[in-house]
Simulated scan of single mutants.
Amino acid sequence: MRLATLRVDGATVAVRLDDDTAVEIDGVADVGALLQRPDWTDVAASASGRVHDAETLARAAWAPVIPQPGKIVCVGLNYRNHILEMGRELPEFPTLFAKYPEALIGPYDDLMLPSHAADAVDWEAELAVVVGRAVRNVDESEAAASIAGFSIMNDVTMRDYQYRTPEWFQGKTFEATAPFGPVLVTPDEFEPGGILSAEVDGEVVQKTPTDDLVFGPAALISYISQIFTLQPGDVIATGTPGGVGHARKPPRYLRPGSTLVTAVEGIGTLRNRVIASS
């Protein structure tokens, strides 16, 4: 099953995507709200609300697939090739940091670069995992069963802010910089292994199979659940592969006017224009 959140008539609504149509799930404001229901799969499968032609929807109609996650947990240094390009050793434990919902934008929204932090803005294409039920101190088998589905995020990073201190957080959650979507694909229709890629102005800058992770989705959920309870609708961005701009010689960064395209085989594509903001 494929789910999305649309902006319709000044509000948002969760939809189920059937081939080229989007069927509204009546009374459910977004996919995050849908996942709060224990019977969410049945509710989504039986939805029969207003139908939209998905092919002709305006790009602005597509919201972040989960607009307000309770938690966004990001994983650093989790693809082998990226770890090596950054000159680090493979980690024993996941490197974790947080992102706030204010950072999220829709899959086709403009990516905003504030003038005070626009000098070293980098791309980080990522597979996102969405939790479907509350989990605490679970093993990997239980963790795998808790996955609601998979989506795509680009963890756009202000490298100058990131490296002002040993803690990465301040470079990782700038407002309106992280495209997320376009859909959530349930595990019966998606398994990691397809290609994750990023393009900048038509040039492929990242391209790696999504199963090249040091810590896979179930391992991450199990580990994080030892620290706090993960709730339905929480999001884990699983890390980025090699090819980031900061590791290039010379470094390459996003600029106003750039177009950033992020894709995962079997899920879809994000396409975001980079614009300057005040």
Rank of each mutant, 00 (worst) to 15 (best):
L3W: 05
L3G: 05
L6K: 11
R7T: 07
D9E: 15
A11C: 00
A11H: 08
R16H: 05
L17M: 12
D20I: 01
V23N: 08
G27F: 04
G32F: 04
T41L: 11
V43P: 00
A44S: 03
A45D: 14
A47C: 04
S48E: 12
G49Q: 04
H52N: 06
H52C: 03
D53L: 05
W62E: 02
A63W: 03
P64L: 08
V65Y: 04
I66F: 03
I66L: 14
Q68N: 14
V73C: 02
V73Y: 03
C74D: 02
G76Y: 05
G76H: 09
Y79Q: 12
R80A: 13
E85A: 06
L90V: 15
E92K: 13
F93G: 00
F93Q: 11
T95F: 07
K99F: 01
Y100S: 13
Y100K: 08
A103I: 01
L104G: 07
Y108S: 02
A118G: 11
A118I: 02
V121L: 11
D122R: 13
W123K: 14
W123S: 11
E124Q: 10
E126C: 06
L127P: 00
L127I: 04
V130L: 08
G132R: 10
R133Y: 07
N137I: 00
S141T: 13
E142K: 11
A143P: 01
S146T: 09
G149T: 11
G149C: 07
F150L: 10
I152R: 07
N154P: 09
V156Y: 03
M158Y: 00
D160K: 15
T165Y: 05
T165M: 10
Q170F: 12
G171P: 08
G181T: 08
V183Q: 03
L184D: 05
T186Y: 05
P192F: 05
I195M: 14
I195P: 00
G202N: 02
V204I: 14
K207M: 06
K207I: 02
T208H: 10
D211W: 10
D212A: 14
F215H: 13
P217A: 04
A219H: 04
L220I: 10
L220A: 09
D234T: 01
D234A: 05
I236V: 12
A237I: 07
T238F: 06
P241D: 00
G242W: 04
G243M: 10
V244E: 03
G245V: 11
G245H: 13
G245I: 11
A247I: 09
K249R: 12
K249D: 12
L254R: 11
L254D: 00
R255V: 06
A263R: 15
E265G: 15
N272G: 06
R273P: 00
V274H: 03
A276V: 00
